[in-house]
């Protein structure tokens, strides 16, 4: 019993530290890559190649004044950043990052917890994050925030269905909901799920970008229209929580994408964790690349896209997959 508690605590601590560091350095990566795509240099001053920039940012944000406007709903205002941040962290609990290992006579599974309904858990939890944004927008008592919150909820309604349906194909093919078993099925390069579910992968990718409020679906934030969207009224560490939540979400979506479609931690030569990290980094690079390439969708375009394209396509994909599996 005690051993189980210690092992779990160690794993959770490791995961939290890894994810927070990952968040910090994905901001660095984003700034560097976007800068290079625009012929700029990005951060160069803090440390060699600006590598300490995330640290400097953190220190700056901690020492910023925490402003609470007088017209906010105080309790919800304080709660919203937490609601948007915690689910993003929770997702990592079910992402497997290596095979079972023997350590001091114990068999340790390299996964936070091996839920038999892992995928369901992931999708339940990531959807919760939107509440943080909606509540932040509503409780701020500012029109920009409210607009951001409303857009976010509309976006969620349009995308959640496509998001959910996009992986039904994967589940049908794999015949399991456990992420560990899913990864075990994709041991070799040829058995990666993306070869069997290419349309499902594209749908997942699109919906994942919308889910994480990334460009070109970053309407809840939309700096040019809504100042900052739902986090207009937030400052200091509360703002940092939203920021970290967004990046943690991106990492989560990348990790789940890598696990579902790209064989998770499987890969030759390098250790399993490194392979997972590499795949996540590849995803992150794609997100950044996308942001530097395409402009923001308009509100109605997004709704049209969600309902008239993604939803039917996801349904079609599910039906075809089901038929093929039945045969």
């Amino acid at each position: 019993m005690l051993e189980a508690v210690i092992i779990s605590s160690a794993k959770i601590l490791l995961l939290v530290v890894a994810v927070l560091t990952g968040c910090a350095y994905s901001t660095y990566m984003e700034r560097k890559v976007v800068a290079r795509l625009q012929h700029r240099m990005g951060p160069t001053y803090a440390g060699p190649y600006g590598l300490l920039q995330p640290l400097a940012d953190a220190v700056k944000l901690i020492f910023k004044e925490d402003i609470v406007p007088s017209r906010v709903e105080r309790v919800i205002f304080a709660l919203a950043p937490v609601i948007s941040f915690v689910p993003a962290l929770l997702t990592f609990v079910v992402v497997p990052f290596g095979p079972e290992i023997e350590l001091f006579g114990h068999t340790i599974q390299m996964v936070g917890t091996d839920l038999n309904i892992g995928i369901l858990f992931v999708f339940a939890v990531t959807s919760l994050g939107v509440y943080g944004i909606v509540l932040a927008g509503w409780s701020s008592g500012s029109k920009y925030s409210l607009m951001g919150g409303i857009r976010s909820s509309a976006q969620m309604i349009s995308y959640e269905i496509g998001y959910g349906l996009s992986i039904i194909g994967v589940i049908l093919v794999a015949n399991t909901l456990s992420l560990r078993e899913l990864v075990d099925q994709q041991a070799s390069f040829g058995s990666w799920m993306i070869w069997r579910q290419p349309v499902g992968f594209l749908l997942y990718l699109t919906c994942a970008i919308a889910e994480t409020n990334r460009a070109p679906f970053d309407m809840p934030e939309a700096e040019s229209e809504l100042v900052g969207g739902y986090h207009t009224e937030y400052s200091s560490m509360r703002f940092a929580m939203f920021f970290m939540g967004e990046y943690a979400n991106m990492l989560a979506v990348s990790a789940i994408g890598a696990t579902l479609f790209f064989g998770g931690w499987h890969g030759p030569i390098l250790p399993p964790v490194v392979w997972l990290v590499l795949k996540v980094v590849a995803f992150m690079f794609f997100f950044i690349w996308l942001r530097a390439t395409f402009p923001r969708f308009r509100y109605d375009q997004l709704m049209n896209f969600g309902w008239k394209v993604l939803f039917p396509l996801a349904l079609l994909n599910t039906m075809v997959t089901a038929a093929l599996v039945m045969l």
Binding site: V33, A35, L37, Q38, H39, R40, M41, T44, W289
Partner: peptide, 18 residues
């Protein structure tokens, strides 16, 4: 096509003077 356009710029030198 759009992706190719942006990725080309990744390999160009930054124009920034430090």
């Amino acid at each position: 096509v759009g992706f190719v356009v942006t990725i080309k710029h990744l390999f160009k030198k930054p124009v920034t003077r430090d």
